[in-house]
Amino acid sequence: MLWCLIFLAGGAGAWCRFSLDSALKKRWTHPVPIGTVTINFLGSFALGLLTGYALTHPEHQILTTVIGVGFLGGFTTFSTAMVEAVNAARSGQALASFWLALGQIIGALILAFAGLTLGTAVF
């Protein structure tokens, strides 16, 4: 049952990523992509919040696992982030590659920390 829900939530998360990324690509014409970074920032903040909630509400473990491991795990992606960073490096955009690899994780860490702090305080 739980595995089935994780499958569905993961699929929904991946679908949301695909839709959001496609929508952003239409508006963002700059060669350095912005979709994956936006998605990973959003997802990291949301998982921080959710983890804060899970710490104080262990009785909702199934729900938080399905959303956290399934939906947010499927929504955010590490592999595409790396592909974009390597693509930038190989096409000579060293600075863009640096930000896609390092800037992305620094931003995600700050947002995850903010989410976790906020989630623990509010819930």
Binding site: S44, G48, G68, T76, F78, I105
Partner: peptide, 15 residues
Amino acid sequence: MGGFTTYSSFAVGAV
């Protein structure tokens, strides 16, 4: 591959 890998668990895990 997108669903298999995860950035959110990575960032929150590190924090």
